[in-house]
Simulated assay, not measured.
Amino acid sequence: MAQPNSSDLAGRTIGERIQIIRTRTGKSRAVVAGLVGRSEDWLRDVEKGRLQNPPPLDMLLQLAQVLGVRDLTEIDALSPSLAKSRIRVGDPRRQADSA
């Protein structure tokens, strides 16, 4: 599974990062949305930046897991809480780090 390098993601929005990673992993919007319990339209809105607020941390963690992302800052490099804690997907300490 090809992972985007940091230069592919630099300066991108959360939605753009999700779309780049999703397409690089070869997953359709329908598949990813279904795996996180959301609609394809919702995921399209996330990717296109049409939501008023970005997805909450728990949803970003689910998306990261489905997309095979190991470090959540690949999706959300701008969040101050993530910049401090460098949350690793699947890390049992993530709840303590994000509290």
Rank of each mutant, 00 (worst) to 15 (best):
I21G: 02
L60A: 04
T23D: 01
S7T: 14
P92W: 06
N5A: 07
I87C: 06
N53Q: 14
I21M: 05
Q3E: 10
L63Q: 08
Q19S: 12
L61R: 11
R24H: 12
L60C: 09
L60F: 08
E16P: 02
W42F: 09
S85P: 03
R12S: 13
I14Y: 01
Q95T: 12
P92C: 07
V89K: 08
W42Y: 15
P55E: 00
Q52M: 09
D97I: 05
L82M: 14
G15E: 01
I18R: 02
L60K: 12
Q19F: 03
E16S: 09
I75V: 15
A83R: 15
I18T: 06
E16Q: 15
V31F: 10
M1F: 10
R17C: 04
P54G: 13
R12W: 06
G34R: 01
S85C: 13
S85Y: 14
Q62F: 04
E40L: 01
D45F: 02
G90M: 13
A30M: 12
Q62V: 07
L67V: 06
G37F: 09
I21N: 01
D71W: 04
V66S: 08
P4E: 05
D45S: 09
K48F: 08
S39D: 11
R24L: 11
N5T: 11
S28W: 04
L9E: 02
V32G: 01
Q65F: 13
T13W: 05
Q52S: 11
R29M: 11
G11T: 04
D45W: 05
S39N: 08
Q95W: 12
L67Y: 04
E74M: 13
L51P: 02
I20W: 00
S28P: 03
Q52N: 11
L43C: 04
K48C: 09
I14C: 01
G68I: 09
R93M: 14
L82C: 09
A33M: 00
V66H: 07
R22N: 13
G26P: 05
K84D: 13
N53C: 04
P80N: 10
D97V: 03
P56C: 08
R94H: 15
G37V: 08
L61C: 09
Q3W: 06
G34F: 00
A2L: 06
L72E: 03
L72H: 07
T23E: 07
K84E: 15
T25S: 14
S7R: 13
I20E: 00
E47T: 08
I75C: 04
S6I: 14
K48E: 14
L61P: 02
V46Q: 03
V32T: 05
G26K: 07
L57Q: 11
N53G: 05
P80Q: 13
L67D: 01
A77G: 03
M1Y: 13
R22F: 10
S28Q: 04
R93P: 03
I21D: 00
R93T: 12
E47S: 10
L63H: 05
R22K: 10
R50S: 06
S7W: 07
Q52H: 11
E40F: 02
L60M: 15
T23H: 03
R22A: 09
L60N: 03
S7D: 13
V36F: 01
D45H: 10
R70H: 14
N5Q: 12
R12H: 12
D58Q: 07
A83T: 13
Q3D: 10
A10I: 10
L82V: 10
L51R: 15
L61W: 08
